[in-house]
Simulated assay, not measured.
Amino acid sequence: MLRLAAVLFMLSVPVPAAANGFEPVKDKDRFLSLVKDRTLRIGLYDLSISVLPDGRIDGTALGWKITGNWSWKDGYFCREMDWSGTPIRYNCQLVEAQGADRLRFTVDQGKGDSATFRLR
């Protein structure tokens, strides 16, 4: 369970920024246009998250509730979450898009591990 909490916004394999056709998303309006009325998914963990324009995060992973809050600061997606009672610490992340179908979040303002989500 703790492993999944750590994986919610990062995968175990670091990926260099701007690799594989991903382009940085530095503007909040662009980010919102990508996630509007869509769900971020990682099928392996049955993870589905909605990032709402009012600053809330809502979703599930392995059938357990995810809640949280987010803001846009200096070109980064900053969030804190809770996964069914397990806090997921505040972190500001680099967001990159690959077309309109995938978003990659890299922790520690792009210096850490990454997680790639499909947009549904």
Rank of each mutant, 00 (worst) to 15 (best):
90 Y>L: 00
14 P>V: 03
11 L>K: 14
34 L>W: 12
63 G>L: 05
97 A>P: 03
99 G>D: 09
76 Y>I: 03
71 S>T: 15
86 T>A: 02
42 I>Y: 14
18 A>F: 13
94 L>S: 08
98 Q>A: 11
68 G>F: 07
44 L>Q: 13
27 D>K: 06
57 I>W: 10
82 D>M: 13
42 I>M: 10
54 D>R: 11
58 D>W: 11
68 G>R: 01
26 K>A: 13
40 L>V: 07
34 L>M: 02
53 P>Q: 13
76 Y>H: 13
64 W>I: 01
20 N>A: 15
52 L>P: 00
90 Y>N: 04
36 K>S: 05
37 D>S: 12
82 D>S: 15
22 F>M: 01
21 G>L: 05
67 T>H: 15
39 T>K: 05
96 E>Y: 08
74 D>Y: 10
48 S>Y: 11
79 R>T: 06
64 W>D: 01
78 C>I: 08
17 A>E: 09
99 G>K: 12
51 V>N: 08
21 G>H: 09
55 G>L: 02
88 I>C: 02
33 S>I: 00
18 A>G: 00
64 W>H: 09
93 Q>K: 08
61 A>W: 10
65 K>P: 00
80 E>S: 14
68 G>M: 02
61 A>C: 07
94 L>H: 04
69 N>Q: 15
62 L>G: 12
20 N>R: 09
77 F>C: 01
15 V>M: 03
